[in-house]
């Protein structure tokens, strides 16, 4: 079936199998590979992207369900000048990433979290990230980065 998406501000149109998942559309059709796949069960959040501004796990959305809608991936987060988004910058400054595999999903989840709750407590950040698994950082610096990004955006 034909699917038309706006991805990071650009139109992407393709004929895909009905069962094509949004994450595969982003990776294989739009050739945007920052969004990773970490599980098959919507558990790990590595594939988190923004769909019309809200975070979704793109392994659990069909490309067809996103037809006509706007998707933002990690590649679309920085300003056109190349300046990193406050959440990206906070990840860098607070060492919120190690191997980098969960990072795109984590960053997108936090962007969405801070949109809903611009000044979260540590406990709110931790609860908000329950659906995103990181195996390297023990979450310590990810939580710090989220709080720092919230602070910087005030």
């Amino acid at each position: 079936m034909k699917v038309e998406l706006t991805v990071n501000g650009k139109g992407v149109t393709a004929d895909v199998e009905d069962r094509t998942l949004l994450v595969h559309f982003l990776r294989d059709v739009a050739d945007l590979t920052a969004t990773n796949i970490g599980c098959d069960t919507t558990s790990c959040g590595a594939c988190t992207v923004l769909l019309d501004g809200e975070s979704v796990k793109s392994c659990t959305v069909l490309a067809a369900q996103a037809d006509g809608r706007a998707v933002t991936t990690l590649e679309g987060l920085a300003a056109e000048s190349g300046e990193m988004h406050p959440v990206q910058r906070a990840f860098h400054e607070e060492h919120g990433l190690q191997c980098g595999y969960c990072t795109p999903g984590m960053v997108m989840a936090i962007v969405s979290l801070l949109k809903e709750n611009p000044s979260p407590t540590e406990a709110e950040v931790r609860t908000g990230l329950e659906g995103n698994i990181c195996r390297c950082t023990g979450y310590h610096n990810i939580v710090k980065a989220a709080l720092a990004a919230a602070e910087a955006s005030q």
Partner: peptide, 20 residues
């Protein structure tokens, strides 16, 4: 702070499935 990060944070890493 790490020199590795800007690439991982803006375009994502290049893992085996990302190789082009």
């Amino acid at each position: 702070i790490r020199t590795e990060d800007p690439r991982l944070l803006t375009s994502g890493g290049v893992y085996v499935d990302d190789l082009r």
